[in-house]
Design a binder for these strands. Structure first.
Lengths: 352, 352
DNA sequence: CGCTTGATAGATAACGTTATCTTCACTCAA
DNA sequence: TTGAGTGAAGATAACGTTATCTATCAAGCG
């Protein structure tokens, strides 16, 4: 039972080699299995490893070899169901590809987003996946492009998940979903039902998610030949509380609105609550729809008609694409489809 | 503009040193700032770093120095709101202490939990935080204890968050919350309201979370001198669908139950839905309470009376305690309090 | 029977940092 | 002046792996 004195701390490959009576490289060979080792020798080494309770030092391995086997995941806030499901997709796919998953949050702060990407560069992550809507500011785009190139030069990859590409010439992988199409389909659904005065509620202009959803909203109106009253496009955060506040303000001012298109399901939850508090019935007095199809949507009363976003698949694809990209394309892009899910929150308008 | 030829990949500290015309250690000193460097030299180095767009190699640094600056976070599933909020707490605290956060999921599989902890050992994470109820199986406890000791020997720390300690002699930090007390208070609340036939619904026996909550349920009954009908303690997963199924089965068999204590808010959501489907009103025909106080609880109809768990604080404490533990205590323990939040889902029983 | 060949295993050199030990030029007191 | 003290930098040696090159031994072949 010759063993390294306890309390010494970490056991290294050297200790294993000594105990097994072989050289250090031989142990390394047993570990990686990429080189022939005599069965007897292998056994001795394995026994020594077990005896000493040895685990490799991932840092030393990363430094010596080339591959790092880590995927970084950058997100506003893990708490939102929207992100949580993408996170699950990322984590699952990463795990199934034998990768570890580094989690960072930015709290919606573009400054912090840049700082975090920098940090990931230090970690030599194989891919850095940035999730959620992007800010349209010129300076932010420039800085992200800069990091995309820096990562690319270091053999890594910037992945944009749920936000538009930075440009054809910037080396990134983009995994987006069809915000514009989903908003278009949903708006068409409302217009088909006879609604003509629809409020689009929530979202900050300049955030890609908002802009794309509003674009779909406008296009559907144009196709139906319905003029949009710009004052019905209300700005706000993606929060339930904002849904409540905006709904109150809207109904205090106008009587003619028959439907509310909430920019997200969370906002829609607030809208429904505000309507209930005001004594209005959904969908009889007011139709309400959302966007995202988070689990909450089907739990609301009434169950919310909304646009389904394939969150989990989004996360999986982000990892999958960034890890095995075959051709040396500068800029890979995938757009996943969205579709409307009809539940119980839409009816024909009463007052035309 | 003498610079390393592009396309070479990673720039190292050597390149910076060469460009700045100083030695490698000098650059390192500028980087860490723990040693005096002449202002002029510092400036030259900083300029070179910017010029070459240099970032340190975290792996090399981890290998050379001792500190690793990573916290690992092991959880069943990021998707559940319960875990998501703990995750947020962990991530926030880790970030504010300058640590990175490694995320792993186990999908409730004890095997995978062990594998993941092993993996974290390779990463030399400063702390490995395992979140959520634990399985009581002897073999699992033994293996976790083993890893706790292994981590401890390597200067790291196993943190149990929301699950009981592994024993006095096992080197761990435990950050728990008062399951038993919360369940006790809530049960007392129901008993005080006059309920005498209460079903405890959901949870798997053997999972610490379940066992602790049931214990509180039983203690309150004992204190009120009310006999518990064991057949009213129903087993099931922590899922909404199980809440629906169990409620249907329960009400098909018995007429005398006046209140349901759902083991979690998710189950309670299912209970409420099933009751509504059966044409029963809450709380007039049946009182319902939950446990966890996830955001969903206040959105349900009626708003759910439940036990508040300080999720985010739990995550923060886990990181804080594991990072600065002063005395060399083998086994630190903290238990955070829980309290009931009264909303609209409890009334006095109609039928006594 | 000597020489090539294949299968193993050891020796040595990276990998990119930080820690530690020296060295070197100065300044200041004796 | 000269020796001690000080501030700044270089030299060198880790850190724990894997990669690469070299050495050994046995078998196979001409």
């Amino acid at each position: 039972m010759a063993r390294k004195p306890d309390g010494e701390g970490r056991t290294t490959i050297k200790d294993v080699a000594a105990l097994a009576g072989v050289s250090v490289p031989t142990v390394s060979r047993v570990l990686s299995g990429n080189y022939p080792v005599a069965p007897g020798t292998r056994l001795k080494v394995l026994r020594a490893m077990r005896e000493l309770d040895y685990v490799v030092n991932a840092h030393a391995r990363a430094l010596a070899g080339a591959t790092t086997k880590t995927v970084a995941f950058v997100v506003d806030d893990v708490t939102g169901p929207f992100y949580a499901y993408i996170a699950r997709g990322v984590e699952q796919q990463a795990a199934s590809e034998g990768r570890l998953c580094l989690l960072c949050t930015t709290h919606g702060d573009p400054e912090r987003e840049v700082a975090v990407v920098e940090l990931m560069r230090e970690q030599h992550a194989e891919a850095v996946i940035v999730v959620g809507g992007a800010h349209a500011e010129e300076s932010h785009i420039a800085r992200m492009s800069y990091f995309a190139r820096a990562l690319d030069k270091a053999g890594s990859r910037l992945v944009l998940c749920g936000r538009p590409s930075l440009g054809e010439d910037v080396p990134t992988t983009t995994v987006h979903y069809d915000n514009e199409g989903g908003a278009h389909a949903m708006t068409a659904h409302l217009l088909s039902a006879g609604h003509r005065t629809i409020s689009f509620m929530g979202g900050k202009p300049g955030l890609s998610t908002t802009d794309e959803r509003v674009a779909g909203f406008l296009r559907a109106h144009a196709e139906f030949g319905v003029e949009v009253d710009e004052s019905l496009i209300l700005e706000g955060e993606f929060l339930k509380s904002h849904g409540i506040k905006l709904t109150r303000e809207l109904l205090a001012e106008r009587e003619d609105v028959t439907a509310i298109f909430a920019a997200t399901d969370m906002i829609a939850a607030g809208v429904l609550k505000a309507l209930r508090d005001l004594g209005l019935r959904t969908p009889e007095d007011m139709s309400v729809v959302g966007f995202d199809d988070i689990p909450l949507a089907s739990d609301l009363t009434p169950a919310l008609t909304t646009v389904h976003v394939p969150h989990e698949q989004l996360g999986r694809e982000a990892v999958r694409l960034s890890l095995h990209r075959g051709e040396p394309a500068v800029n890979d892009q995938v757009v996943l489809g969205t579709h409307i899910v009809v539940r119980d929150s839409v009816a024909r308008p009463r007052r035309l």
